[in-house]
Design a protein around this nucleic acid. Structure first.
Length: 561
RNA sequence: GCACUCGUGGCGCAAUUGGAUAGCGUGUCAGCCUCCGACGCUGAAGGUUGUGGGUUCGAUCCCCGCCGGGUGCACCA
């Protein structure tokens, strides 16, 4: 039941459409005021009457019924109270029917959305700074899928540039197959770090030469590069499995090597290309931006050139309705420039490109620096959180089976959640103290709540009690608050998609878990016979909805912990 | 210097894009396990939303100035 629509359809105001009324209806800050509210201030202009009078007028004429039980004017608002029994039945029957699909829809049916996220660099281990793009992108991927969109997850591999010449040079100088196979990607990264520390002009020149060899198809250079690439991919695969991340394409920068020349040609044809200091640029001065560099003075392509080619390729290949780039805000200007250039090229779909920018991660003593060894590796964080989870479980629930498996869900979930709980634009200062603290607003709290609900349901099954929705059951305050939270979930998921904010879903999970815990303490679920069936239904519905929420975020839900 | 961005109790963050008495967690203090899982619940203390103007019936939110933090600004990605 869409209550906003229902209410708006029962109000008659001359000169104001039902749709306008529906758009005005909001939720009061405090449920003691009511369940929905119509602010009358904007109507005051149209009707040339004071908001208070309009509110009183609407309230007096509103036909209360079994759906909306009350309309009351207060301070220029009309507050509506929904008949609790009806709302409860509506929401809970829907959740019990749909289970973990509650909140899903076909809103995006027939639409395609490309999401570029994670985008790892070859031969670089994952550090904590890569977490946001990976889990935000992964969550958006699932959220859009949940809403019926066809989603294309793209890992735009960083596999192009002189850095790979450096890597080969470093490997040939100091590396060996055995060490690399034993030490994996970290061993290779160490070589790269050493190269940067020791490189002189001659070594830099050598690196450039190796990169040229990769480009020109030299067999040895390419074999090495492909080997580094396969080591990297098998390494990241392990991490993606833990984080529940998937991709449909691994087309990285190198993939666009042969797709850039036509773009440059097109820019030239359209008269957008200009020479400046020996380089080829698109002048963006009229738009208040620095020029977009297309070709270096030595003729080589640049980052922007590849992103132009990639965008055009994606449009051609996937015919997307939207293409998201989940990339840190450092690249704000870059994407603004690239999008503008595409627009100038006459690509009317340039408006469908969205830079989903998020904040950066630093450490307590400043920015991360691979060269100075000031790095926090993601796998270390994951391992330590899983260990911590294990020790807590071992302490509180020593007899539990498959403790390791549950510790994985809890520990990894905590890491994912920490990157998804706040607005994505916020910077994050990483500390192990915070990462290992599972109290309060964390995934662990939500998981614990789920385990508690599961436990009640298991006890009910033992006792032969069944969940049911009796006719005309009027929920008490605690029950009703929880039901209201549950009813918000579908809109929350939609808002998360519209604003590219997985944090909305994360916040909803915590909020709903809080309401469940209040309900749990104030209302005995199994004890009292008259309320038992309904409360079991409420418990079951809560578990389904919370599971749906956590699953969208990529977080597992243990039955026991 | 210019552009973008952030600034909310000690600390970390919300506030349904302009609505009612600004919420939550953490930390501090005080309570609650003979009662469905205490990784939990209840209560107390803690705020001039950086600052000064403006717009508005109404501003944490929009506009302008200032202060402070972050990021970016031509051949790296």
């Amino acid at each position: 039941m869409d209550y906003k629509r229902y209410i708006s359809e029962h109000i008659q105001i001359e000169g104001v459409t039902k749709e306008e009324l529906e758009g005005l209806i909001a939720v009061p800050p405090d449920t003691s005021m009511g369940d929905y509210a119509l602010p009358c201030f904007k109507l005051a202009k149209v009707l040339r009457k004071s908001p208070a009078l309009i509110a009183e007028d609407i309230a007096a004429n509103y036909p209360a019924d079994g759906v909306v039980s009350e309309a009351k004017a207060l301070n220029g608002y009309v507050n509506f109270r929904i008949a609790r029994a009806g709302l409860a039945k509506d929401v809970l029957s829907r959740i019990l029917e749909e289970g973990e699909n509650y909140g899903s829809s076909d809103l995006g049916a027939g639409k395609t959305i490309c999401i570029d996220y994670s985008s790892v660099n070859i031969a670089k281990p994952f550090h904590i700074g890569h977490l946001s793009t990976t889990v935000i992108g992964g969550a958006l991927y699932r959220i859009f899928q949940f809403l019926g969109y066809h989603t294309v997850g793209i890992n735009h591999l960083g596999d192009y540039g002189t850095q790979f010449g450096k890597l080969i040079s470093a490997y040939k100088r100091w590396g060996s197959r055995e060490e690399a196979e034993k030490g994996g990607i970290h061993a290779i990264n160490d070589l790269y770090v050493r190269f940067n520390e020791e490189a002189d002009e001659a070594m830099e020149a050598e690196a450039r030469e190796y990169f040229r060899l990769i480009e020109s198809g030299d067999k040895e250079a390419n074999e090495l590069f492909d080997w580094f690439k396969s080591l990297t991919l098998s390494y990241v695969k392990g991490i993606y499995e833990k984080l529940h991340i998937t991709f449909d394409s691994y087309a990285g920068e190198r993939f666009y090597t042969d797709k850039m020349a036509p773009v440059v040609e097109e820019l030239k044809e359209k008269g957008l290309l200009k020479e400046s200091n020996g380089a080829q640029i698109v002048d963006l001065e009229p738009y208040g931006m620095p020029p977009c560099l297309i070709l270096r003075s030595d003729g080589a392509s640049l980052y922007a050139t590849r992103d132009l080619a990639a965008a055009i390729y994606r449009k051609k290949t996937y015919d997307f309705d939207k293409c998201l780039y989940v990339v840190a805000y450092q690249q704000n200007l870059h994407f603004k420039q690239v999008f503008k250039v595409l627009e100038l090229m006459g690509k009317e779909w340039a408006k469908d490109l969205v830079h989903v920018a998020y904040g950066m991660v630093s450490l307590e003593d400043g920015a991360m620096s691979t060269r100075k060894g000031k790095v926090v590796w993601l796998e270390d964080v994951l391992n330590r959180c899983v260990e911590k989870a294990y020790s807590v479980i071992d302490e509180k629930n020593p007899s539990l089976e498959n403790k390791q498996e549950i510790a994985e869900k809890v520990g990894v979930g905590a890491v994912i959640f920490s990157a998804l709980y706040n607005n994505k634009i916020k910077d994050i200062v990483f500390s192990y103290d915070k990462a290992l603290n599972f109290d309060g607003e964390t995934s662990v709290y939500v998981q614990y709540t789920c385990a508690r609900a599961s436990s009640v349901l298991a006890k009910a099954a033992e006792g032969g009690f069944e969940a049911a929705l009796p006719e005309n059951y009027t929920p008490c305050d605690q029950e009703f608050e929880l039901i209201r939270a549950l009813s918000d979930f579908p809109d929350t998921v939609k808002a998360a998609a519209e604003r590219y904010e997985p944090s909305f879903v994360a916040r909803w999970c915590v909020d709903t878990a809080q309401k469940f815990n209040k309900f749990y303490f104030d209302c005995k679920i199994l004890q009292e016979e008259e309320t038992r069936a309904f409360r079991l239904a409420l418990t079951k519905a809560t578990l389904s909805a919370l599971t749906a929420g956590l699953t969208l975020l990529g977080i597992g839900v243990p039955e026991k912990m």
